[in-house]
Design a protein around this nucleic acid. Structure first.
Lengths: 160, 160
DNA sequence: ATAAAACCTCAACTTCACTTGAGGTAAAGC
DNA sequence: GCTTTACCTCAAGTGAAGTTGAGGTTTTAT
């Protein structure tokens, strides 16, 4: 079945994202397309995989900028092979591990610190601005905005 | 030691945040102050605890809006007692538990799905837009922007 | 052959959580 | 007493990740 050439609308519908998002990703250098005779975008099926990686990485908390850099870090920015994906996912797994560990500590501290009402500000690990805990997480993160927006919207314009 | 009345600058320095952030939080109804004869903000030491809770909640991924609603949900928005904090932290712990579970699933799927290179789009749980996994996480989340910004800046204007 | 649906570009708008700056007042230090 | 530091307000700006809309072209369906 899998078609060999995709239009922007097909990709968007298949991926559950908006056409404008594809435009945006292309503009950001995250995906590529070529144009047909009438200047319309055409995609290789491969773009689906690329988008799924973008989405997965976003869920892990990787910013578009970092995702882009990850893509660019692949040997001369080639179309990623299975090994490339594995390498990327390995990095992101480590990020995830760090993040999970961080959240777990935070969870325990929520009980220990807020729960007890101390929140001493000088010693409380929840509150220390130079937070050691923060070091175990691995960098800037936006989590689950995708889900948030997906739920908030329910994509009324793509209902058919 | 603990002083009984705090100025905005003291609170900011103690909390490692900017004065403008305190203005902002006040404007958002997250904290309160009164004014002295010269129209300057004065705070009870309690505000430190309140800010620490805001920061902790943000780390957990709670938005300012949700934090505000949590505060407001306390019996007639009273100054929170230790039990109140415990209740809040219990809610946020659940959120955290959900989020951790979600990330763990995601982590496993990163290995299973991206790693294998399949990313089938129809069946891949990483990619499914109506993602069942997403349901186990509990809502909209921004994580660790605070750390990100704190690191990116190193607050050059508050170096003394 | 024509109407509808899909596509194009470009600029401007959205939300969140703040930050910056201008122009001015208050408090602290010497 | 004077100067520096801290504070005030209000408006506008920032950055991430898109979304919306206007005005126009192409493709598809009938």
């Amino acid at each position: 079945m899998a078609e060999a050439i995709w239009s922007v609308g097909k990709v968007a519908k298949r991926c559950g994202i908006k056409v404008s998002t594809l435009h945006f990703y292309e503009q950001q250098g995250l995906i590529q397309s070529w144009r047909n005779a009438g200047n319309q975008r055409r995609y290789k099926p491969e773009v689906l995989r690329r988008i799924s990686v973008i989405k997965a990485a976003q869920k892990v908390g990787v910013s578009l900028d970092e995702i882009k850099r990850a893509f660019e870090s692949l040997p001369n920015n080639r179309t990623p092979t299975v090994e490339d994906w594995q390498q990327l996912s390995k990095n992101w797994q480590q990020m995830l591990d760090g993040r999970i560990a961080y959240l777990q500590k935070l969870r325990n501290n929520l009980a220990g610190c807020i729960g007890c009402g101390c929140l001493s500000m000088t010693s409380c690990p929840l509150y220390n601005p130079d937070d050691k805990l923060a070091e175990s997480g691995s960098g800037p993160v936006l989590l689950d905005q995708a889900e948030q927006k997906a739920r908030a919207q329910q994509d009324p314009s793509a209902s058919s």
